[in-house]
């Protein structure tokens, strides 16, 4: 999947509850490594469970793990939604 692919979206734009596959992450290596350790890496399926009030962070589900992530960091994760 190329970055220009029209069906790609950023994780902060993904509707709540919709499954998506991680395509690539546009962050510093350290951040990428940490996300990978938490199960957010290309090829894995993730979803947004809910978002916190007042544009607060997102609750992301990756496999058996739930993760809190701010919207700005979520925007670096490009996903391919499953329809």
């Amino acid at each position: 999947m190329k970055p220009s692919d029209p069906v790609l979206t950023q994780l902060d734009q993904l509707p709540v509850g919709m499954l998506a596959t991680v395509c690539y992450i546009e962050a510093q290596t350290e951040m990428t490594a940490r996300l990978r350790a938490l199960g957010i890496k290309p090829g894995n399926q993730i979803s947004v469970v809910r978002s916190a009030p007042l544009s607060g962070p997102l609750q992301i589900r990756a496999g058996q793990t739930d993760i809190i992530l701010r919207r700005s960091e979520a925007a670096t994760i490009h996903v391919n939604p499953a329809f």
Partner: peptide, 8 residues
């Protein structure tokens, strides 16, 4: 960055 596990 806030990257934190939300444990059960």
């Amino acid at each position: 960055p806030l990257v934190m596990e939300l444990p059960p």
